[in-house]
Design a protein around this nucleic acid. Sequence first.
DNA 1: GGATATTTTCACATAATAATCACATGCTGT
DNA 2: ACAGCATGTGATTATTATGTGAAAATATCC
Lengths: 237, 237
Amino acid sequence: MGTESAGSVLLIEDHHDIADMVCEFMEGCHYVMDYAADGVTGLHLAVTGDYDVLILDLMLPGIDGLQLLGKLRNEARRDTPILILTARDTLDDKLSGLATGADDYLVKPFEIKELEARVRALIRRQRGQLAPETLQVGDLVFNTSTMELRRGAAAIKLTPIGLKILRILMQRSPRVVSRRDIERQIWGDILPDSDTLRSHMYNLRKGIDRPFPVQLLHTVQNSGYRLVAIDEKKQRH
Amino acid sequence: MGTESAGSVLLIEDHHDIADMVCEFMEGCHYVMDYAADGVTGLHLAVTGDYDVLILDLMLPGIDGLQLLGKLRNEARRDTPILILTARDTLDDKLSGLATGADDYLVKPFEIKELEARVRALIRRQRGQLAPETLQVGDLVFNTSTMELRRGAAAIKLTPIGLKILRILMQRSPRVVSRRDIERQIWGDILPDSDTLRSHMYNLRKGIDRPFPVQLLHTVQNSGYRLVAIDEKKQRH
DNA sequence: GGATATTTTCACATAATAATCACATGCTGT
DNA sequence: ACAGCATGTGATTATTATGTGAAAATATCC
């Protein structure tokens, strides 16, 4: 069952030999390939279909590749990521291709592996798979891009510093994070006079743990704190 | 008015001559540039700062560029678009760079204009500027080509800056947009002396929220603002 | 050039958050 | 059991962030 698709790709290219080679290789990498040999067909497919990425040759029978690109972006208003793959290698070609709305530009002759790597990068970004915007520990979910925090169904409100501390703990979970580490990340080198962190940890715990039956935030004497879902019933030194 | 920023870019590069050249050119194109000459500084800036794009050299004093990239993606979990700019030109270098999480890879020596075009493409995609002409959040609809704005049946009139801010917030909805981010997109790096944004946010809120029962514009202390329709039901504290 | 619209600046109000403190509780090794 | 330190608890105070509204400065339009 390992045959999940790596993504669907439309290749618009009039050289059959190159097209075949690309399709074959990409299919070997689990992409679902579609193929158009001329601009009109290509544009039509690009508008109607739902591809993760387009690979576009610039010199096509029918419509010129740049025109196609322009139409797709400005008229059809599709924002499918586009990689231009062409023999045109002058600076101006690259500039106008990227300016018209392409996301990447690769010059022939090219390494097929590089093509695949660039396509993968485009898909990865499109899907937002780079850095998941949510951190999760147990049933605690922190969406760092909306700053929403919830445990199970309940929304939780924390203060800015509380959130910062929580983020650090979630990032390092299930490891122990030392007080000093937290302090340094929050305040840098000039720490407050008093042991403020204690209060913050108290309030953090009040927010994320007190209303719930299972504790996530654990104190490790003399070491620091750790955020973890599992119980330590097994721990019995 | 006039000096809108094209985006903020962090350049991590240990060759001062290249760095100077790049910064100078990019600033000429209205980018706000920041610069780190070694890996540690670069990583720190990348994690704490809030850039539209990173340009990363692979051979750095301190941390290796690939390590930096990995840490940024996997530990700090930042998804800032990254363009690798390096003299390493083997296929394997490119593959591992892209695989580790880079979005683009440009080999030295390079054309500065191509670098700029690629950076621009990354920012364009990140900001979703190919977005549909009508933006919608809840019952708030903004037609960006006619500049018409309405909430439900009611037409709303805003000032130019108000509209710009609103557009930024709508494009990124439901995400939090930091004040700094908004300020940079409106004023570039020469900000007004006073905290003008506050007034604008006040007026924006007056325009789009005050006459209506459901709030769309939410303040997130110490982070920024976000525009969302759905609201937090029950909160605990 | 004067009317109009927009932006910036300011002063003050309010809300939210952080620092500090005093005391309570709990753990650790002898 | 005890001393000594580490951490929890919660209230109080200080500080900071943001909201509010108007007035001054600036740009824009005819």
